[in-house]
Deep mutational scan, measured.
Amino acid sequence: GKMTGIVKWFNADKGFGFITPDDGSKDVFVHFSAIQNDGYKSLDEGQKVSFTIESGAKGPAAGNVTSL
C-alpha cells in the first residue's frame, strides 16, 4: 500500500536519492523515473512524499512517488 515519508536527499544530476519512511523502516532508494509529475522529475530534501515499495533489481525501491 501507500506509505509516506520525507526525502532524505536527492541528487538531481544523477537522478536518484533516498526517502526516509514515516514508519521508521529502512531508507528507500528512489529513482527519478518513479516520480509522478509532468514536469521536471526531481525531489527536494525534506519534502514530504507518498510512495509504494516496488522490488527492483537492486532491492526495494520507491514507486508512484507523489509530493504531498
Rank of each mutant, 00 (worst) to 15 (best):
66 T>S: 10
54 E>Y: 13
26 K>P: 13
9 W>F: 10
14 K>I: 11
39 G>S: 08
48 K>Q: 09
53 I>Y: 11
12 A>P: 07
26 K>S: 13
22 D>Y: 09
34 A>G: 14
22 D>A: 12
5 G>W: 01
1 G>H: 09
15 G>H: 05
18 F>D: 01
28 V>P: 00
40 Y>L: 12
24 G>Q: 12
1 G>Q: 08
50 S>Q: 11
23 D>K: 07
58 K>P: 10
20 T>K: 13
12 A>W: 12
33 S>F: 06
9 W>P: 00
56 G>W: 09
50 S>E: 11
14 K>V: 07
34 A>T: 09
61 A>T: 12
59 G>L: 11
16 F>H: 07
43 L>P: 02
43 L>G: 01
41 K>A: 07
55 S>T: 14
3 M>N: 09
58 K>A: 13
48 K>C: 04
18 F>N: 02
21 P>D: 02
45 E>K: 13
66 T>N: 12
27 D>E: 14
46 G>K: 06
28 V>G: 00
67 S>R: 12
13 D>V: 11
6 I>Q: 08
34 A>K: 11
53 I>K: 08
53 I>R: 08
62 A>I: 02
22 D>K: 08
43 L>D: 01
12 A>Y: 09
10 F>L: 02
14 K>M: 15
56 G>Q: 12
3 M>H: 14
15 G>K: 05
40 Y>A: 11
50 S>V: 09
20 T>G: 06
64 N>C: 05
47 Q>G: 10
16 F>Q: 04
7 V>S: 01
1 G>E: 11
65 V>R: 00
16 F>D: 01
17 G>P: 00
28 V>Q: 02
59 G>Y: 07
18 F>C: 03
25 S>T: 09
35 I>C: 03
63 G>R: 11
9 W>Q: 03
59 G>E: 04
66 T>V: 13
11 N>P: 02
54 E>L: 15
27 D>G: 04
34 A>R: 06
61 A>P: 02
66 T>P: 01
51 F>T: 00
24 G>W: 06
29 F>H: 02
35 I>E: 02
29 F>R: 03
3 M>T: 14
37 N>H: 12
52 T>K: 07
38 D>A: 15
15 G>V: 02
15 G>S: 03
37 N>F: 14
68 L>D: 10
26 K>G: 15
6 I>E: 05
47 Q>W: 09
5 G>Y: 01
6 I>H: 09
19 I>E: 00
50 S>L: 08
64 N>M: 13
57 A>S: 14
67 S>H: 12
37 N>P: 07
6 I>P: 01
27 D>C: 04
25 S>Q: 09
45 E>W: 15
16 F>L: 05
32 F>P: 02
32 F>M: 13
41 K>Q: 11
68 L>G: 09
29 F>S: 02
57 A>P: 13
14 K>Q: 09
53 I>S: 05
31 H>F: 08
28 V>K: 03
60 P>E: 14
68 L>N: 13
66 T>R: 13
17 G>N: 00
33 S>H: 09
57 A>Y: 14
55 S>K: 15
33 S>L: 14
32 F>Q: 11
8 K>M: 05
30 V>Q: 00
9 W>H: 04
65 V>P: 01
62 A>M: 01
51 F>L: 03
49 V>P: 00
21 P>Y: 08
35 I>W: 09
20 T>F: 08
30 V>P: 00
61 A>N: 14
1 G>L: 12
38 D>K: 08
20 T>M: 15
61 A>L: 13
17 G>S: 01
19 I>V: 05
46 G>M: 05
58 K>M: 12
18 F>V: 06
9 W>K: 04
20 T>H: 10
68 L>M: 12
21 P>I: 06
29 F>I: 04
43 L>F: 06
67 S>E: 10
51 F>V: 01
24 G>F: 14
44 D>S: 14
54 E>I: 14
63 G>P: 02
42 S>Y: 14
6 I>K: 14
7 V>D: 00
38 D>P: 13
47 Q>S: 09
43 L>I: 07
20 T>A: 11
8 K>G: 03
36 Q>A: 10
23 D>E: 12
33 S>Q: 07
42 S>F: 14
47 Q>F: 06
41 K>T: 11
62 A>Q: 01
11 N>D: 10
36 Q>F: 09
63 G>W: 13
44 D>I: 12
5 G>S: 00
58 K>N: 09
67 S>C: 05
1 G>D: 12
65 V>E: 01
41 K>C: 05
8 K>L: 12
39 G>I: 10
34 A>V: 15
66 T>G: 05
14 K>G: 08
7 V>I: 08
46 G>C: 04
58 K>Q: 12
12 A>V: 14
40 Y>T: 11
57 A>K: 14
60 P>N: 08
63 G>N: 14
45 E>A: 11
51 F>P: 00
27 D>P: 09
67 S>P: 11
35 I>K: 02
30 V>R: 00
37 N>V: 14
39 G>P: 15
37 N>G: 13
45 E>S: 14
39 G>K: 11
19 I>G: 00
1 G>T: 14
54 E>Q: 12
26 K>R: 09
49 V>M: 02
49 V>L: 03
62 A>N: 01
41 K>G: 09
2 K>L: 11
11 N>V: 05
29 F>V: 03
11 N>W: 15
38 D>F: 07
48 K>H: 10
11 N>A: 11
24 G>A: 07
12 A>T: 15
67 S>I: 15
38 D>W: 06
4 T>K: 08
11 N>G: 05
38 D>E: 12
26 K>M: 13
67 S>Y: 15
18 F>A: 03
40 Y>R: 03
5 G>V: 00
22 D>N: 12
58 K>G: 15
63 G>F: 12
25 S>W: 08
14 K>F: 09
25 S>E: 08
9 W>L: 04
61 A>S: 06
22 D>W: 08
64 N>V: 07
33 S>A: 07
62 A>T: 02
23 D>H: 12
10 F>E: 00
26 K>W: 09
14 K>N: 04
35 I>T: 03
14 K>L: 14
25 S>M: 12
45 E>N: 11
35 I>S: 03
38 D>T: 12
23 D>I: 06
4 T>I: 08
42 S>I: 14
62 A>L: 02
45 E>L: 13
28 V>E: 01
32 F>R: 15
54 E>N: 07
41 K>Y: 05
18 F>H: 03
2 K>H: 11
8 K>Q: 04
12 A>D: 09
27 D>T: 07
19 I>F: 02
32 F>I: 15
7 V>E: 00
8 K>A: 07
63 G>E: 11
20 T>R: 06
22 D>I: 10
17 G>D: 00
2 K>N: 12
3 M>A: 08
62 A>W: 01
48 K>I: 10
49 V>A: 02
7 V>Y: 01
46 G>N: 07
19 I>Q: 00
32 F>C: 05
55 S>F: 15
34 A>S: 12
5 G>R: 00
19 I>P: 00
34 A>L: 03
17 G>T: 01
14 K>C: 05
28 V>Y: 06
60 P>Y: 13
27 D>A: 07
17 G>K: 00
42 S>G: 12
48 K>W: 11
31 H>S: 05
4 T>E: 08
50 S>P: 00
47 Q>T: 12
26 K>L: 10
16 F>E: 03
